[in-house]
Design a protein around this nucleic acid. Structure first.
Length: 491
RNA sequence: CGGGGUGUAGCGUAGCCUGGUAUCGCGCCACAUUUGGGAUGUGGAGGUCGUAGGUUCGAAUCCUGCCACCCCGACCA
């Protein structure tokens, strides 16, 4: 395969698209807006799933599965929800095809559904319709359920992983007796997402709440984690919603309290999607290709034997390479020995760099004689010759160091790209001349937020949770404000 | 969905303006020599030129519709 080089600094979009294809993560399918996730890309998604799923289970959740289809009438039950999703729903209207007059397969008009089915864009409605039957008493609460699923949102414009018509995600849907408990759940899951993003993806995130304008359709409060990509655009990486009693009321889900009164149930929902693949790619990768954090790499270490021409030397090198491979495997490291003899070492080096493998070990005759290996790390491109003594421990430490370094690098980049401004001129100047987040005072009204969006294309990514109270004036209106919010151009 | 652009072998491309059945590189197959940063030579296979029509003796090339992708908007995880 000829490698098409696209520089990140020259055309970020082209670089991203090219990287997704070259690194064998995904490709466009025959279906508009839908992608094929290839085995290597899916392996990374599976690692994400495993890490998230463990955290969900650790916080008491169970997995379940609800239907792909939702009766249309369910959507009309929660008014703001239908407003939010109606414009992007795929609808099933018929259940049969037949042979048409001209030999073409056509939809059988006689097989029209009584009630159309919506392909889920999210599952609150079907799930809350189900919860009505599950919840009768305070003893049935809480319900802590997650589902791994595909959903469909008919977006105007799609991009590999970042926004596809069909995407994979998980959606947690919990039911609680009290508002306090539901809010605690919402916040807990936000922490789970932030922990996952920072410690597994090595992507620093800002935890915050969305403004009323950016809130999930049907939520009282939307918490989010926001990341900053290498091109300086923000990416919403996960959301956790406090839904109040909106869905309980819409679907009439009540429970009997200890005092035998009937109360509506309190709800949360939370989700992250294959968009995280996009976040991962855009946070760390470079002109040589993908850069994967060790905690997520399907292959953490690749061993490349440098095979000489003499048959006996070949065997010596291979034996040594195999020995090191099993030593690392025994330590629980995901290691691959690439002993193919028909591609050159140089080709393999470049190929595994493209695939983002964190550590490469090369072993040749020199190393066999000296009891050494050459170790190269993907993140810094540094190479060093190491003694094979305790190689497993050394590699284990190196992987941990790479994980930390990637996070630190991304964190430094993010912090360098938060621009604090205090008036409208500074605000505009920052948006025009710099990329990243702009930290500014805002008067708290949707009107101002929309006006700023119209004037600058920047949106309020979130009201950060850890911000300190600080009196100031809104950059646009001059009205009083008590806290800074983060603006940015976003994906 | 609006504006702009692109579509030729698995990948990247030339040819299109000025119509005559397609160029080059990588990859692939065979053999040999190679192997510490994308090896070299020799021989070979692979294309209904995105798709459906139209014009023409003849269409990759001209015209029309459609599809897909990219960029910029609007919408959004």
């Amino acid at each position: 395969m000829e490698i098409k080089k696209v520089k990140r600094s020259e055309d970020y979009s082209a670089w991203y698209n090219n990287l997704v294809k070259q690194a064998d993560l995904a490709e466009h399918s025959a279906v508009k807006g839908c992608m094929v996730i290839k085995p290597y890309g899916y392996a990374i998604w599976e690692k994400m799933q495993a890490e998230l799923d463990k955290r969900f289970k650790d916080t008491g959740h169970q997995n379940a599965y609800f239907p792909l289809f939702i009766p249309k009438s369910f959507f009309s039950k929660e008014a703001s929800h239908v407003d939010g999703f109606a414009k992007e729903c795929a609808v099933v209207t018929h259940y049969r095809l037949k042979n048409g007059d001209d030999g073409q397969i056509v939809v059988d008009e006689d097989a029209k559904l009584e009630e159309e089915l919506i392909v889920r864009p999210t599952s609150e409605t079907i799930i809350w319709n189900t919860y009505r039957d599950w919840i009768k008493s305070h003893r049935d609460l809480p319900i802590l359920v997650n589902q791994w699923a595909n959903v469909v949102r008919w977006e105007m414009r799609t991009r590999l992983f970042l926004r596809t018509t069909e995407f994979l995600w998980q959606e947690g849907h919990t039911a609680h007796a009290t508002a306090e408990e539901a809010i605690a759940e919402t916040k807990q899951m936000l922490e789970v997402y932030a922990d996952f993003a920072e410690n597994i993806l090595a992507v620093p995130v800002v935890k915050g709440v969305k403004t009323a304008n950016e809130r999930f359709a049907g939520a009282l409060e939307t918490y989010c984690i926001e990341g900053l990509m290498q091109d300086g655009k923000a990416l919403q990486m996960g959301t956790s919603h406090f839904l109040g009693q909106n869905f309980a009321k819409a679907f009439d889900v009540k429970y009997a309290t200890k005092e035998n009164t009937q109360e509506y149930v309190w709800a949360t929902s939370w989700g992250v999607s294959t968009r995280l693949m996009g976040a991962l790619i855009m946070s760390h990768s470079d002109d040589e290709g993908l850069v994967l954090p060790p905690n997520l790499a399907p292959i953490q270490v690749v061993v490349v034997p440098i095979l000489g021409k003499k048959e006996e030397e070949k065997q010596l090198v291979l034996d040594k390479a195999r020995a090191i491979t099993s030593t690392l495997k025994a330590k629980g490291i995901a290691v691959k020995l690439d002993d193919r003899d028909h591609v050159s070492p140089g080709f393999k080096f470049a190929d595994y760099e493209l695939k983002g493998v964190p550590v490469r070990i090369a072993i040749g005759m020199r190393d066999v004689q000296n009891e050494t290996v050459e170790v190269a790390r993907r993140d810094t491109k540094e190479k060093q010759v190491m003694s094979v003594v305790d190689i497993d421990t050394k590699i284990e430490h190196l992987l941990a160091a790479i994980q930390v370094n990637l996070f630190q690098k991304a964190l430094d980049f993010r912090d360098d790209h938060i621009h604090v401004v205090n008036n409208w001129d500074e605000f505009n100047h920052a948006l025009e001349t710099k990329t990243g987040f702009v930290s500014a005072h805002w008067d708290g009204t949707t009107e101002t937020e929309l006006k700023i969006k119209e004037l600058t294309k920047a949106t309020i990514r979130c009201v950060p949770l850890n911000a300190t109270a600080e009196n100031g004036v809104c950059v646009l209106t001059g009205n009083p404000s008590t806290q800074r919010v983060l603006f940015a151009k976003a994906y």
